[in-house]
Computed example of a mutant assay.
Amino acid sequence: MNDPTQAAADLPHEDFRCGAVALVGRPNVGKSTLLNALIGFRLSIVSPRPQTTRHRILGIATSEAGQVMYVDTPGLHRGAKRAMNRSLNRAARTAMAEVDLAVQLIEAGRWTDEDEALYAALVEQNVPRLLAINKVDLAKDKGALLPFVADLAARHLFEDIHYVSALKQKGLKELERAILQRLPVRPPVFGEDEITDRSERFLAAEMVREQLMLRLDQELPYATTVEIEQFKDRDDGVTEIHAVIWVERDGQKAIVIGQGGAQLKAIGSAARRHMERLFERKVFLKLWVKVREGWVDDEAMLKKLGYTD
């Protein structure tokens, strides 16, 4: 029989807040690092390259005061000529239209045309917005930030402005409080132990792609994507995963495989270790590299690969 006292204790506080918050910004400004820091979990893949995030990633942070559903979005791409870039822009714009609040992330001391275009998109969607100035730890002349921010505030309307370092996790508590107080009072959507609505299958593909972004040179990572063909839990407690790395040309396939298969083995080993930490069980990972010319411009292929949310 259920304990009514315990059941009452499990209910959220009467002023418990819950809402969705989009983390938006131009490519490579630190949105995924910020998401991981805010939820206290390495969910969204991170690399030094722009355009690492290709999907909307939901990260859930639950506390006694509320539940914040952070949405990590792809950076907006100006002059998007390829189907992939148009898909990323649609994902980012859709996220803006579906949230209670947006946090625009910029680099300390930099406001570019891309930042301006993103701000205009937020205004068009009429979404409440905060400004988070990231990488303040890297700013050589912190005194120069004051006139920079004053100029921004004079020309743009933000409800609040915060200085943060997502990498060093500085200024995040103040940002979290500012976010929570602007969310509606309502019960949680997810259980307190849930951190995302994405499947393990999706996360496995992302972890392989992260290694491609980290280990391949120049433009090659952008010509690759990952498809999970098999994901099953075996009777021996091991999760067996078969994944295909798609490239656009035969020459790219040879580079991904590497001499004697060394590159592909390194990619697979690193991805498998990340999966085992995340899934908390043994993983057997098998990778193949296949060529699909023009997959980046193939709408049907992009849909199959999950790029049309």
Rank of each mutant, 00 (worst) to 15 (best):
M1I: 10
D10C: 12
P12A: 13
P12S: 14
F16P: 09
C18N: 14
G19K: 11
G19H: 11
A20K: 14
V21W: 14
L23V: 12
V24Y: 08
G25A: 15
R26I: 08
N28I: 08
V29D: 07
N36M: 10
S44Q: 02
I45Q: 04
V46N: 05
V46R: 04
V46A: 09
P48W: 10
P50G: 12
Q51E: 11
T52W: 03
A61Y: 07
T62P: 03
T62M: 10
V71F: 09
A80I: 09
N85G: 03
N85M: 08
N89L: 03
R90K: 12
A91N: 00
M96A: 06
E98S: 12
V99N: 04
D100E: 15
Q104A: 02
E107L: 06
E107W: 07
A108C: 09
W111V: 00
E116H: 15
A117D: 15
L118P: 00
Y119V: 13
Q125T: 13
V127I: 15
L130H: 10
L131F: 09
V136N: 04
D141S: 11
K142L: 10
K142E: 12
K142C: 05
K142G: 03
G143K: 15
L145Y: 13
L145F: 12
F148L: 01
F148A: 06
D151E: 15
A153L: 07
A153K: 14
R155N: 14
L157S: 14
F158W: 13
D160S: 13
S165P: 00
K170N: 08
K170E: 13
L172G: 03
K173E: 15
E176C: 03
E176G: 12
I179H: 05
R186E: 08
R186F: 03
V189Y: 15
E192S: 14
D193F: 11
I195P: 00
D197V: 06
S199V: 11
S199R: 08
E200N: 15
F202D: 09
L203H: 10
M213V: 04
L214A: 08
R215N: 13
L216H: 04
L216T: 02
E219F: 01
P221N: 10
P221V: 07
V226S: 02
E229H: 03
Q230I: 00
F231P: 07
D233F: 15
R234V: 05
G237F: 07
T239D: 02
T239R: 12
T239V: 11
I241K: 05
I241N: 02
A243Y: 01
I245P: 03
R249P: 00
R249K: 14
D250H: 06
Q252I: 04
A254D: 11
V256R: 00
G258D: 01
G258M: 05
G258E: 02
G261K: 06
L264S: 05
K265M: 08
A266Q: 14
A266D: 10
A271M: 06
R272I: 06
R272K: 12
R273S: 11
R273E: 14
L278I: 02
R281T: 08
K286P: 00
K286R: 14
L287I: 01
L287F: 02
W295V: 04
D297R: 00
E299V: 13
M301R: 15
L302Q: 07
K304F: 01
K304G: 04
L305G: 07
Y307D: 06
Y307N: 05
